[in-house]
Design a binder for these strands. Sequence first.
DNA 1: ATGGTAGGTATCCTA
Length: 274
Amino acid sequence: MRLRITSWNINSIRIRLDLLARVVRHCRPDVLCLQETKVENGRFPRHEVAALGLPHMFLHGQKSWHGVATLARLPLRDCEAVGWCDVEDCRHTICFLPGDIELHNLYIPAGGDIPDPEVNPKFRHKLEMLAALTDYFAARRGDGARLILVGDLNIAPLPTDVWNHRALLKVVSHTPVEVEALTRLQRAYDFVDAVRTRIPPEEKVFTWWSYRARDWRKSNRGRRLDHIWLSPALAPYLREVEVWAEARGLERPSDHVPVTAELELPESWFDAAV
DNA sequence: ATGGTAGGTATCCTA
């Protein structure tokens, strides 16, 4: 059974329905995890999304900011919105896919401009959410779950995940304290970074380019902020990944591009689910 | 070194 999963920070779903259709056509996701939908559940364009072949959805949105949505070709079950750090923000959901696959869709706080938790509450919130997730996954380490964690994690961990490692060491998204926090989260559950199993760490990979560049392609000052992580139980079944960078050059783009992973899973997992 | 753009919303906040 082939399963394609795409993660994309759409930066407002309501103004990008045409682009969403293009992403669905290009990436052919069985499950599409969106971040920054920027819309309350009651105003989410359900019919338009269902018409794209993704009729099953779990929405966790709020007015103006943040918001995640998991959209699927196949039924979702046991869906849950998760809150951390006593904040009402809509940043995390868990849904189960056929085959007992536990899918986490995450939008980690960007963290503001100043990389100091003492003076910048947004940066503190970012580190605290990462620490809370680390505790949560550390407590489950080795449980053998078929688990996928995707989303805009707002951190570029490797030197080759940014256009200039030295220039970005003091820029939020690539500071050592953030990279360490993300690495701790990854190691807490032995997550496998799907993209980096296919693209060697010497090679630059970006999933985000600022709107502020005159020419995103020419300056190419990107960062890899969007990730697909697999639990040890799922990692052996990864077949391919794609970062659709060309999506950044489409009309009225998001500043993030979609990341897709394709898994080839044992049929028996799905027989058992029936 | 600085400021640059985009989206939601209705004034500036967030990214």
